[in-house]
Design a protein around this nucleic acid. Structure first.
Length: 602
DNA sequence: AAATGAGTTGCTGAG
DNA sequence: TCTCAGCAACTCATT
């Protein structure tokens, strides 16, 4: 919204008669009517590699051809056209930064951005002498419903194609039924370009930027550029970013010279291209395990439901694209990693997942990051590493697709390709395999933030606790807790006296780390990938049971809910909705059904 | 072609 | 304060 309003104002500055004209209807039904009504000769749009976007753009292109409209596409989301990168990489996904660099270099030099127009023509007539088609949502639920306030629902469509005043205005949060944003991060090209200028003005920062050495605990100001949301929403061109950084880097004469990819600023853009190109090659299964030949099958808890219609298709090579928000009308079959349905194979893992999501794990650094994410829509990349490792291979052993779903919902800079790719990286399902390198929820934070300032900010319950104990408050002596006004207790909810209770850690981290390591070793030993038939039909289980492996889907590991044998049968089809917008303060209690849940498939 | 080194971002404890 | 081996050990790139 910030972006659309800012763009509209920029257009108006060039020509007061013009602006950004927003039409409220799905392009698949709207465009054919516009082609006729407005005598359209050309349709120009940006390519995209996301599964839904590809599907939509194919339909639109076909409709345009039928109407005799010439279609022109450009790619603006990446440094190189992802399809060309894939072509130069033999049609295979780019699975390492070296591969991306080699394929990118083979494509050619990264194009320089085209300057913005200096003037714009007047808009023509835009008569709307046709009816409005409703979005084809039959059988689809409104995924955003939980976020719309007051049960008002989405009023933006009801207002008509040209909006409530008939002036093609940008929709408002209120029309969409959303409450005011809680994030302090604002969008729009003007802000993004201003930020870029400010960053580049600091040549030392720009030229010597080394991502692994930026702090995940820094806030006000953060240690990285925070330009990822601008890249996502199209407020900043990655190629403009790249070339303006290059100018500074090339001119830099500081001691020790500039940093280089992959750690440098331009390196960060290369990683982005790597994920986009990987997605372009793999297609729809890239955002999930099932049907993904490049993603290891690891029998995590809380796996996505496998249904007859779960997509396993791979698109043909020519129409590949990238990322978008996927939140549009009709985002359907193809975007399945955020599918709300998953099997609760372990009530314990489900509780851990809920507490992770709510920021009430009892591990303060994890909770601070998750609460920062929920409130502000952004956390530092290394913070994402920690919480992702913790949820998957380094703690909860919960499926990365669950975490990716939560990130997809909360991140301002969410790119399906980067999100899925990074979750695969951190969970060691793909891109990365050193699973024995496990982040510690206490040690990792301390390294960057020994005073625990990030925790004090986002977990106010602990704000006054001595730095010595702030990462592990359960180890604090009673006296220290008392002085800080902290009470440790509860299973992850904040108790009656708001802000005074902080939960006990939900498990012994060292113990969980050891279990996860052993389970990862077993999974690597089995060596299945997502496209294996045994993943779909469930016979993968035999391979793991032969190895005596217990930490897996439906595995019995003798934990607190092992007393429900008589209910095992009706647990088989227990499914939980994956989208549940609980706020940080909510108590996450074990539901009556939870204790009945055991395993999903015989 | 087997072997070696490197891989954006682990932790702990010794020196 | 910093560096480094040890922990256990995976893939990829290069030779």
């Amino acid at each position: 919204m910030d972006c659309q309003n800012d763009l509209s104002e920029s257009i108006q500055k060039l020509n007061p008669k013009s602006k950004l004209f927003v039409l409220r209807e799905a392009p698949q039904t709207l465009l054919p009517k516009l082609f006729k009504a407005w005598n359209v000769t050309h349709l120009v749009f940006e390519k995209d590699t996301d599964a839904y976007a590809r599907e939509r753009d194919l339909v639109v292109t076909d409709l345009a051809k039928q109407a005799g409209v010439e279609v022109i596409t450009r790619y603006g989301r990446t440094l190189w056209d992802s399809d060309e990168v894939v072509a130069k990489h033999g049609g295979r996904p780019t699975m390492s930064i070296t591969q991306l660099q080699a394929a990118g270099n083979a494509v050619g030099e990264i194009p320089k951005p085209i300057p913005a127009p200096a003037h714009l023509p007047d808009p023509g007539d835009m008569p709307l002498r046709f009816g409005r088609d409703e979005p084809t949502t039959a059988g689809l639920e409104d995924l955003n419903a939980p976020h719309r306030s007051g049960g008002a629902g989405d009023k933006s469509y009801r207002a008509g194609i040209a909006g409530p005043n008939g002036d093609f205005a940008v929709e408002t949060l209120e029309e969409l039924g959303f409450p005011p944003a809680t994030t302090p991060h604002r969008g729009g090209e003007t802000i993004a370009l201003g930020k870029l200028d400010a960053i580049l003005a600091d040549a030392e920062y720009t030229a010597t930027f080394r991502k692994p050495q930026t702090s995940p605990a820094a806030f006000e100001p953060q240690s990285t550029t925070l330009l990822s949301p601008a890249l996502h929403f199209g407020a900043l061109s990655p190629r403009l970013f790249y070339w303006r950084v290059r100018e500074v880097v090339d001119a830099y004469g500081g001691k020790g010279g500039p940093s280089k990819p992959p750690e440098s600023l331009t390196g960060q853009l290369l990683f982005r291209d790597m994920y986009f190109a990987a997605q372009a090659a793999v297609g729809a299964p890239f955002t999930q395990t099932l049907g993904n030949a490049h993603c290891r099958f690891i029998p995590w808890h809380l796996p996505s439901k496998i249904t007859a219609t779960t997509t396993t298709t791979t698109p043909t090579t020519d129409e590949k694209t990238e990322t978008g928000t996927g939140a549009g009308a009709g985002a359907g079959a193809a975007t399945s990693n955020t599918s709300p349905d998953y099997d609760v194979d372990s009530a314990e893992a489900e509780r851990w997942f809920r507490r992770w999501e709510a920021g009430t794990t009892g591990f303060p650094f994890v909770d601070a990051l998750m609460r920062q994410l929920r409130r502000e829509g952004w956390i530092h990349h290394l913070g994402r590493h920690l919480v992702a490792c913790f949820l998957t291979r380094g703690g909860c052993y919960v499926h990365w697709e669950r975490g990716a779903g939560v990130f997809a919902e909360l991140l301002l800079d969410h790119e399906p390709a980067c999100n899925a790719g990074n979750w695969q990286w951190l969970s060691c399902a793909a891109f990365y395999s050193q699973y024995y390198r496990v982040y510690s929820p206490a040690a990792f934070g301390k390294r960057w933030d020994p005073r625990g300032e990030l925790i004090r900010r986002y977990v106010p319950e602990l704000a006054r606790l001595d730095a010595k104990y702030i990462y592990e408050p359960w180890r604090a002596p009673g006296k220290a807790l008392e002085e800080a006004g902290v009470r440790i207790g509860g299973g992850g909810g904040v108790g009656g006296e708001k802000g005074t209770f902080y939960p006990e850690p939900m498990f012994d981290f060292a113990e969980r780390r050891a279990k996860c390591l052993a389970a990862m070793k077993a999974a690597y030993g089995v060596g299945l990938y997502g496209d294996d038939g045994r993943v779909r039909d469930g016979t993968w289980r035999e391979l793991f049971e032969q190895k005596g492996q217990t930490e897996m889907q439906g595995g019995f590991d003798g934990t607190d809910d092992a007393d429900d044998g008589e209910h095992a049968d009706d647990a088989d089809h227990e499914v939980r909705r994956g989208k549940h917008a609980r706020s940080v303060g909510d108590t996450v209690e074990e539901g009556p059904m939870d204790r009945h849940v055991k395993r999903l498939k015989a």
